[in-house]
Design a protein around this nucleic acid. Structure first.
Lengths: 222, 222
DNA sequence: CGTTTTAGATAGTAAAGCTATCCGCTATCG
DNA sequence: CGATAGCGGATAGCTTTACTATCTAAAACG
């Protein structure tokens, strides 16, 4: 197919597709003459992947490219996981001060306690440390034990994730599963947690069952 | 104190503080004359909160303002939770098509199965639906059962979160705890999951214990 | 008293993520 | 065959976000 159809079938505007081509997110179509190219199903798939990572996963375009590069390169799932984690991690500023040191020790301890084979210098660990340091600065160290409370839960979640992604299919699908599971999985996990918060909070405060409905139809702050 | 000290003690540049004042994230200091104002500890606290939500939580400045507005307004924790959730949710495009309908049914079913008192029209539910629809478009419905697998875990997490935030302290601290717990808690939960992924993946693939170390000192893709 | 500093206003900047326009070529329909 | 609609590629422009810089007149400080 040519660009117009690619656009029509994915819902992505032609200029945007051209932009993705320029940025290297999408491989060029098969050239048939100096100014004609054909695109196939793989391009449709890739476009959908781009939109999923960007819109649902919330990744900036540059990160999407990094992630897709990792998928394309013929690497083992573990390598891809590292590359994806490296790509999606938000930048952590500072990286200094007493708070930071104490937070680093706490995360090290957590890793040791759970026997996790993960490095305290890895991107997710740094994010965790930044969050702990931030909590300390806000004078809310009392909330820092969230990490110890969450640990057993995420341990189970991660085990299941790995089992689910590894089972069946070829290596290509596994690699793709790692990417989707990591990025979209996090979006879903966060959304589920917020959903559960609604329920748990309503429960704890004895809010009536139709509270949400009344709120929606009532005075809407926007 | 005056602006220079406020800047020094928080590490936030003066022009940035002025920007936050303009944007309404920070309340003006107490005016002592037409062009002099004094700031106190509450301003330092607020600035730290802004930085935490923006840098660690990854919220855009406009959302930070919305969240802080919710904290300021004298509302019940449940209201604040709703406002925070509304503020932090990423925009979900589309909202149409067969995929969307099927995904909505699946989320409704999930809510019913767990007896969760949460509305399928609420922001987190919409995010979840968008993620499921996206998974379907990618032809990876096989990964959609993530939500059912995650549900019991987040249920426990949310219960503990609510208990932890509600205990002790005044209403003001509780409200603040809801905000911090929701936003920073999600950052921490995501980071922990990625950490656990490293461990679980290394385990499953039989990667040697010092793999991460070797990788770090080896050829670094950047 | 003179040098800083301040608040507040206005303008400028840099990056991200598109969007619009133009050009010469190509495919195709009549 | 010829008109015309569409194509790929290059370049330039636009909008939003989050700051950053400059200016002015008035205070504050030594």
């Amino acid at each position: 197919m040519r660009m117009a159809e690619l656009s029509r079938r994915t819902g992505v505007p032609v200029p945007t597709i051209k932009y993705y081509l320029r940025e290297g997110l999408l491989l060029p179509g098969e050239r048939t003459s100096p100014n004609q190219a054909f695109y196939d199903e793989s391009h449709i798939r890739r476009l959908r992947m781009i939109r999923a990572l960007a819109e649902v996963g919330g990744l900036p375009i540059a990160k999407v490219r990094d992630v897709l590069d990792a998928v394309d390169s013929p690497e083992e799932p573990f390598e891809v996981l590292g590359a994806v984690q490296h790509s999606i991690e938000p930048p952590t500023g500072n990286r200094e001060g007493v708070h930071w040191e104490a937070a680093t020790r706490r995360v090290s301890q957590l890793l040791a306690d759970h026997g996790w084979r993960a490095n305290v210098h890895s991107p997710p660990a740094q994010t965790l440390i930044a969050a702990l340091a931030s909590l300390h600065e806000l004078g809310r160290d009392d909330l820092a034990d969230l990490i110890e409370r969450y640990a057993p839960h995420v341990e189970k979640i991660a085990e299941e994730d790995v089992k689910r992604v590894a089972r069946g299919r070829g290596i290509e699908d596994t690699v793709e599963g790692v990417v989707i599971g990591t990025v979209l999985g996090e979006t879903m996990l966060g959304a589920l947690r917020r959903l559960a918060h609604q329920h748990a909070t309503a429960n704890a405060l004895g809010v009536s069952a139709d509270y949400e409905d009344r709120k929606r139809s009532g005075s809407g702050r926007e």
